[in-house]
Design a protein around this nucleic acid. Sequence first.
RNA 1: GUGGGUGUAGCUCAACUGGUUAGAGCACCUGGUUGUGGUCCAGGAGGUUGUGGGUUCGAGUCCCAUCACUCACCCCA
Length: 418
Amino acid sequence: MTSIRSIKGTQDILPGQSQRWQALETTIRNIMDTYGYSEIRTPAFERTELFSRGVGTETDIVSKEMYSWTDQGGENLTLKPELTAPVVRSFIQHNLGGQSPMNKLYYIDALFRRERPQKGRYRQFHQFGIEAFGSEHPEIDAEVIALAMTVFNNIGLEGLTLKLNSIGSPECRSDYRNALRDFLKPHFSDLSETSQKRFENNPLRILDTKVPHEIEILKDAPQISDSWTAEDKTHFEEVCSFLDEMGIQYSIEPNLVRGLDYYTRTTFEITSTALGAQNAICGGGRYDGLVEMLGGKPTPGIGFAAGMERILLALGNVETNSKTTQVYIVGLGDAVRPTVVKLAEDLRHNNIRTQLDVLRRSMKAQMRDANKSSATIAVIIGDKELKSGLAEIKDLKTGDQEPVKIKGLVDHINSLTL
RNA sequence: GUGGGUGUAGCUCAACUGGUUAGAGCACCUGGUUGUGGUCCAGGAGGUUGUGGGUUCGAGUCCCAUCACUCACCCCA
């Protein structure tokens, strides 16, 4: 009989690791509170159409990475591979825009993409992120970026680079697309196969290339900034000046376009030097046309998503102090079982972290376990103590032991500093 | 989808150019006389060497296949 293993690219988060996750999640939630973002939770799966329309059929995510299936009712469904589209869908469906001109939402959630796993990349992975709907002004761009940086600084991530760019408004982008095509046309035969494909359907992505001779060609290419409208320019400059004002360092990367179709104007990415090839810890940008594209009223929006696994990876294995046991109850013999079971329950109801041996082990084994649990005190109750009505309380640090009335044990333990 | 690396106990690793019964440390369990932890000492359990073939008198070791893990390409968090 072969045992069943977890699916490739998925991982169990075992007790030692789950503490690190909880610490990270707590920090995130606290910071979201201080910035005024509220949590939104969307279903694990959606109609496939949401992603093909929202993210773009030409993107890698939609064209080859989605877990999709047809259910028994004939509907085409997909495990969510990203969260902006589902949050936008929910925003539209519940008319959140109609209830308030500004909506600031955050999430911590699991995502699914069928890629070949490697360091920092998994088939089920987790992101936290925000989506802010309602404002087209650069204040919110700066706030979104600042929030991300605050989380990373707060948890002690070092070696980060914030990369910033603006890909302009849709009008300017179509201008630029033409300019870029005109520029690349003479070099077409020198381009890689993928770049040649992108030449037709998404020429901006060619800017992202890592092929050395393409980078060389692109040196003289027109810049997106050349096609910016006056408003695009002012917008970007204001975002930069707000970041300067807050003391946030960034580097402007004219070729940062990012993979998803819905971005407009501000795009940004935060990378870490502590990771391998998958060094992006956070990515985001503005998507002023997305809400309308998915059937809502025209509403500007901006957000980011950050990879939890990558953050924890970049953070390294730092010690997290877990809540240890305070009281360990050592019970000896059949007669005491009702007493110790009740005692453990009473202590726990008094918020005292209590462990009770449930393996009916020898005293030696129980004491060893008590020591391992790093409990402050052990309460020893056997036949003798039951008869006398006095339990032995042993301080596991000093080894001192004293008898205490079983009747008043909870009060007594409550009065101790554990 | 493509390429590289690695598979020996729960974990970290040994086992010379193929040669007896595959070892150690940590962790785990039991003892060191009645009911007292850590340290120490003694003992125990735990492996079809990922799996299947092949070469050989003989394979953990060599060859082939396969699977898993891992890193990288592509792309992304």
